[in-house]
């Protein structure tokens, strides 16, 4: 067991996969000599050379398309979005080519690539650097969306994403890179399509992902003292949603609270709510409660920023309210 920071867990995953498969490469802005803006690729270029840890010019749409072409012809590129928000500039390549091309080509080509990087609301980074792109990309067919939240799952999931033969958007959170955890010495991978039951409980199912998982576990401390027994599920896979795990929990608790950092309109929670209503409406004892970010560009001011995203106290209150509705 070795205590590992989340960004180092990601680097270990990339390092191990690059050592295992010579077609795996990393490309993006400042991934090589600079080591990545969050040091996820630090020193990898010294070990693997400049072709395999390729510093690109600032040309997001084109280097993303280049990765698509490289993937179509047998390489396994990992793109680092220096900030995931920058990938708005690559939206066309991600949607039309990474996402849809395999289908449009009638199965002629596979696109094994990973697009990873930091997103989410950080500390006063301003609106453009505080985006949650998962909401924008969830409508694109052919993409898998995965959000890591701990050093352990970051490493295991990234290794699986690199081995997957489909394009995977891999979301990291800018405020989670310094989380620490003891990781196994032996190699491990984690399935991309399985949610993680963070805490078992029977009162209410809390569905969350990425940094909001940690807001939920913060709220849990208060809730436990007050005698509540919530089940917390980290979705991990934002697309496809793991309805096996989600369904099993809802059949037990009959109550759902969604806690997300996406904006409320058209977010992951919106899709999740609709899907729960489609599939499990008869299991629900109360309407699904959705805690999401405000529908505004993330403001710079710290107090306003805090008002924009969900805070642990809101989760406490939501559980109290939901359980009080017990029939």
């Amino acid at each position: 067991m070795a205590e590992t920071l989340l960004f180092n867990a990601l680097r270990e995953a990339i390092d191990e996969e690059m050592a295992r498969d010579s077609t795996v490469l990393v490309l993006g802005e400042d991934v090589g000599h600079y080591g990545g803006s969050y040091k996820v690729t630090k020193d990898l270029c010294k070990k693997y050379g400049d072709w395999r840890v390729l510093d690109t010019p600032i040309a997001e749409n084109s280097f993303t398309g280049m990765a698509v072409g490289a993937a179509m012809t047998g390489l396994r590129p990992i793109i680092e979005g220096m900030n995931m928000g920058f990938l708005l500039l690559a939206f066309n390549q991600i949607a039309n080519n990474a996402g849809m091309l395999r289908y449009t080509s009638g199965g002629n080509y596979k696109i094994p690539m990973v697009i990873r990087g930091p997103g989410g609301v950080g500390r006063q980074l301003g609106a453009e650097h505080s985006q949650r792109l998962e909401a924008y990309f969830q409508g694109v067919p052919g993409l898998k969306l995965v959000a890591c939240s701990t050093p352990y799952n970051a490493k295991g999931l990234l290794k699986s994403a690199i081995r997957d033969n489909n394009p995977v958007l891999f979301f990291e959170h800018v405020l989670l890179y310094n989380l620490k955890e003891d990781l196994p010495e032996e190699e491990y991978t984690l399935p991309l399509d399985k949610a993680e039951v963070v805490r078992q409980g029977k009162d209410v199912t809390i569905l969350t992902y990425s940094r909001m998982r940690h807001h939920c576990t913060t709220a849990l401390k208060t809730l436990e003292k007050q005698g509540y027994d919530p089940e917390i599920i980290d979705l991990i896979s934002l697309k496809p949603l793991d309805f096996e795990t989600i369904g099993a929990s809802i059949r037990k608790t009959h109550r759902v609270i969604i806690v997300e950092e996406c904006m409320r309109t058209g977010g992951i929670g919106a899709e999740l709510t609709a899907s729960i209503n489609d599939r499990l409406f008869d299991e629900l004892d109360a309407p699904v409660l959705r805690l999401a970010s405000q529908d505004i560009p993330t403001p710079y001011n710290g107090a306003l920023e805090n008002l924009t995203i969900v805070q642990p106290q809101q989760i406490v209150e939501a559980v109290q309210k939901m359980v009080a509705l017990r029939v």
């Binding site: 084109s62 398309g65 280049m66 698509v68 072409g69 490289a70 179509m72 390549q93 080519n97």
Partner: peptide, 8 residues
């Protein structure tokens, strides 16, 4: 860019 990727 896709063509560039094949060349790369």
């Amino acid at each position: 860019p896709v063509a560039l990727g094949a060349a790369f």
